[in-house]
């Protein structure tokens, strides 16, 4: 295009208005095409990254032992497998719960996660307390907070007895 292209209706810089509007249209089309292309690539990427938010793990009952294995009045740790472990999860699929067999025969299953920030609480048989190793949270035998930072009781999982076997409902990690 000759730079000397001048005319009566030419604006600043001597450009013909038609050419200006053509340039403006071209830059708009190019940017729009770029944006659409980027969005086309981005949505599966972002969707894939955020998919876990929409996916809900189906909880399941896990058998942890015969009723007779848990003496009344005792609180013991039971281990079982995640509801839906991925094939490569390995030992990370294992999880645990504190199972308390009440004197009246009822079972209570506590999450091992401290309600402060999720560290694993330990049952101290002598003290009859749950204690957290991270920030010193302490809970009574019924899971209610006794001292330290926790404000909420230990989360309980549903428990049932089927055919003399104790089963714990294992679902999502208790959050918040």
């Amino acid at each position: 295009m000759p730079a000397t292209d001048t005319c009566a209706e030419c604006g600043e810089g001597g450009e013909h208005p038609e050419r200006i509007s053509r340039r403006r249209a071209l830059s708009r089309v190019s940017m729009a095409l770029g944006a659409v292309s980027a969005a086309l690539v981005a949505w599966p990427v972002v969707g894939f990254l955020f998919a876990p938010l929409a996916r809900r793990v189906q909880g399941t009952w896990r058998t942890v032992g015969r009723v007779s294995a848990f003496p009344p009045g005792a609180t013991v740790q039971v281990s079982f497998t995640d509801p839906t472990p991925l094939p490569w999860a390995g030992q990370t699929a294992a999880t645990a719960s504190w199972l308390r067999h009440e004197a009246n025969g009822d079972f209570i299953a506590f999450s091992v996660n401290c309600t402060h920030l999720g560290c694993p609480v330990r049952w101290e048989q002598g003290a009859q307390l749950f204690m957290c190793p991270c920030h010193g949270g302490v809970y009574y035998a019924d899971g209610s907070p006794a001292s330290g930072p926790p404000l909420r009781a230990l989360t309980r999982y549903p428990v049932r007895v089927v055919g003399g076997q104790v089963q714990i409902w294992t679902g999502p990690l208790p959050i918040g």
């Binding site: 990254l49 876990p52 995640d82 991925l86 094939p87 999860a89 959050i175």
Partner: peptide, 14 residues
């Protein structure tokens, strides 16, 4: 939390 863990529990995706 689920975004960090890659699901609603700790596991293979984390």
């Amino acid at each position: 939390a689920h975004f960090i863990l890659g699901g609603d529990r700790l596991g293979g995706a984390t």
